[in-house]
């Protein structure tokens, strides 16, 4: 009871409410595309793109841009497009190109920050970018509205192109054969993924973003078998885990790792439920 009172007390602060709204929206967006990414075997793309965003953020910091998003977003989108396109190229396999861009951007980003940074607290900045730290709790009203608008765009794109995304996810060759512009929809998916990654960096940091993308989808796949039911379950689960993670973290643990820990517990629960249900079905 005392713990609940403490939580309600914290919700009097606007930054706590902002964190909850933003966290839930990011979780919803990341889980929607998570199913597609897992099925397309691009689970690790979130990690690669988040490291690209880290590198871009370092460049923005060095250049002295006040609005980092203006540089981070386009660079991440370009890399997302390159990664998804290169994934179809036989010369460099999908996982190799993700790994290459991931470590390259991370190393260059840290190098630039170390050599040219004008920040007074480099270790704090790196920690916040990699693990989120309290980034989600220090958002301004502008950041929140930006997140709300981008989230609405992401969900709208997913709804409008649901059937196309479904086709491209499961059988790209067949969708091309039927005259669908698969390349265009892959480009759309890449752009949406990049937007989600940049948004999610505030929530869990660049090292933990993949968890937001893959855990809800994988958990839902333990129990449900159709694309539609997996997507709905992943979205609901992701939102619940994120909200619970933020609530627990407000009581004294780091935000990003707590959300991921809740996702892991949910995955274990769904795996158990899937095993039991699988046994019953047989």
């Amino acid at each position: 009871m005392a713990m609940l009172n403490e939580l309600f007390g914290y919700f009097e602060y606007s930054f706590v409410r902002y964190a909850m709204i933003t966290g839930v929206l990011i979780a919803l967006c990341s889980s929607l595309l998570g199913v597609t990414l897992v099925l397309k075997r691009f689970s690790f793309i979130g990690d690669g793109l988040s490291h690209v965003a880290f590198g871009a953020m370092a460049v923005a910091g060095v250049v002295g841009l006040t609005n980092e998003m203006a540089l981070v977003m386009p660079i991440t989108i370009i890399c997302a497009v390159l990664l998804l396109r290169t994934g179809q190229n036989a010369k460099i396999n999908g996982d190799a190109s993700v790994a290459m861009i991931s470590v390259g951007a991370l190393a260059l980003g840290y190098l630039l920050m170390s050599v040219f940074s004008k920040s007074n607290n480099l270790s704090g900045d790196v920690c916040a970018t990699l693990f989120g730290a309290t980034s989600i709790l220090t958002l301004t009203a502008f950041d929140v509205w930006m997140c709300v608008i981008l989230s609405i765009v992401v969900v709208a794109v997913f709804l409008l192109f649901y059937n196309k995304i479904f086709c491209v996810t499961f059988d790209e060759s067949f969708s091309k054969a039927t005259g669908m512009k698969a390349g265009l929809y892959n480009l759309l998916i890449a752009i949406v993924i990049a937007v989600i990654i940049v948004l999610a960096m505030n929530l869990v940091g660049s090292l933990l973003i993949s968890a937001l993308v893959i855990f809800p989808a994988l958990s839902a796949m333990r129990v449900f078998k159709s694309f539609k039911s997996v997507t709905i379950c992943a979205a609901v689960l992701s939102v619940c885990c994120s909200a619970l993670g933020i609530l627990i973290s407000i009581l004294g643990t780091p935000v990003g790792p707590t959300i991921v820990a809740v996702d892991i517990v949910a995955f274990a629960g769904f795996s158990l439920a899937g095993a039991i249900l699988g046994g019953v079905r047989k």
Partner: peptide, 11 residues
């Protein structure tokens, strides 16, 4: 809590 202290000091 520790998280709230960090956030308040950061703000």
């Amino acid at each position: 809590s520790a998280t709230m202290i960090q956030t308040q000091l950061s703000n």
